[in-house]
C-alpha cells in the first residue's frame, strides 16, 4: 500500500512570531522555518507503517513557495521515498490545498493519506477533513493511535471528552495529534543522501486548479497585551489579593 503524506513548511515551533509593523502579516524573513510538527508526526507514522510491512512506499507532497522544498528533503532524511512539490508564491488556503491534493491522489492512488491535524501558522485545522470530503473517503482526525490491517484502519482519536476509536475502510484520511508518536531524528548519512534525491516539481496550473484565496486578509495585528503583574510573598497574601480582585 502506498501512503501519501502532505506536509507544510511553517515558522519553527520554538520561534516567537512577530507581527509586521505594517499589519500585513507575521514577519518570516530571517526566521527559522521547519516542517510543521504535526506533519513531521505524519511522516514518522508512515515510516513506522513501512517498517512494519504495512506500507510499501511513502510519497510526500508539499505546496508552497520555492524555499519550502527544504522540507521534502527533511522528509527524505527521515525515510520518505518520493517527493512531489507544487510551487507557488501565492497564499494557499486549506480548500485550495485540498483540491490540489485531490488531483494528486487521483494520479497516485494511495491507500492511506496521513496529514497533520493543523499547521501551527494559520491554525486552521481543516485540510485533512476537506480532502476527505472532496474524495468521499472516511476520515479519522486527531489520531493518537493508528493500526492498519488489510483494508481496515483502526484509529484512536483525542476528543474533548477523552478518547474515541473508529474503524475505517481504506482508502481513508487520518490526521495526527501530538501523542501519535515521537518523530525520530534523521542521521547524518541520511541527511546527505536526501540532498541528492530528486524532487518532482509542479505548478498548481498543471492540475488546472484555481487557488485564488477566498478569504481577504484585511489586517494582522498584535493581540492585546496584558497589564504587568506583581509578585506576592506568601500563599496568604495571594489569597487576600485574589479575594480583593473578586475572583475568589
Amino acid at each position: 500500500m502506498k501512503v501519501l503524506v502532505p506536509i507544510k513548511q511553517v515558522i519553527d515551533a520554538n520561534v516567537r512570531p512577530r507581527v509586521k509593523a505594517d499589519g500585513t502579516g507575521v514577519d518570516l524573513a530571517n526566521v527559522k522555518l521547519s516542517i510543521n510538527p504535526f506533519c513531521e508526526i505524519a511522516v514518522e507514522e508512515a515510516i513506522r507503517l513501512k517498517e512494519k510491512g504495512k506500507a510499501s512506499e511513502i510519497v510526500v507532497v508539499s505546496i508552497g513557495p520555492a524555499k519550502a522544498q527544504e522540507i521534502i528533503r527533511s522528509a527524505y532524511a527521515l525515510g520518505a521515498d518520493r517527493g512531489l512539490f507544487v510551487e507557488t508564491e501565492e497564499r494557499v488556503e486549506p480548500l485550495a490545498v485540498a483540491k490540489v491534493l485531490q488531483a494528486i491522489i487521483a494520479a497516485e492512488q494511495p491507500g492511506l493519506v496521513i496529514l497533520g491535524k493543523q499547521a501551527i501558522d494559520d491554525d486552521s485545522n481543516q485540510t485533512g477533513q476537506m480532502l476527505a470530503g472532496l474524495l468521499g473517503w472516511p476520515q479519522a482526525t486527531f489520531a493518537s493511535k493508528l493500526e492498519v490491517d488489510g483494508d481496515r484502519a483502526t484509529v484512536t482519536r483525542e476528543v474533548d471528552g477523552g478518547l474515541e476509536t473508529l474503524a475505517l475502510t481504506l482508502p481513508a484520511i487520518v490526521t495526527t495529534d501530538l501523542r501519535l508518536n515521537n518523530p525520530r531524528y534523521p542521521t547524518l548519512p541520511n541527511i546527505m543522501k536526501a540532498k541528492k534525491k530528486a524532487i518532482d516539481v509542479k505548478k498548481p496550473e498543471d492540475f488546472g486548479i484555481d487557488i485564488t484565496p477566498r478569504l481577504k486578509v484585511l489586517k494582522v495585528s498584535e493581540p492585546p497585551a496584558r497589564k504587568p503583574g506583581i509578585k506576592v510573598a506568601s500563599a496568604e497574601e495571594l489569597v487576600k489579593d485574589l479575594k480583593a480582585a473578586g475572583v475568589l
Binding site: 488556503e93 486549506p94 480548500l95 485540498a98 491554525d123 486552521s124 485545522n125 481543516q126 485540510t127 485533512g128 477533513q129 476537506m130 480532502l131 476527505a132 470530503g133 472532496l134 476520515q139 482526525t141 486527531f142 482519536r157 483525542e158 476528543v159 474533548d160 484565496p213 477566498r214 478569504l215
Partner: peptide, 21 residues
C-alpha cells in the same frame, strides 16, 4: 473536537473556505 471534525468536510463539499475559530 466534534465541530472541527465535521464542519471543514461540509465546507469543502460546499466549495467554501471555512473561517476557523
Amino acid at each position: 473536537s466534534s465541530g472541527k471534525n465535521i464542519l471543514p468536510r461540509a465546507a469543502a463539499l460546499l466549495d467554501v473556505m471555512q473561517i476557523s475559530d
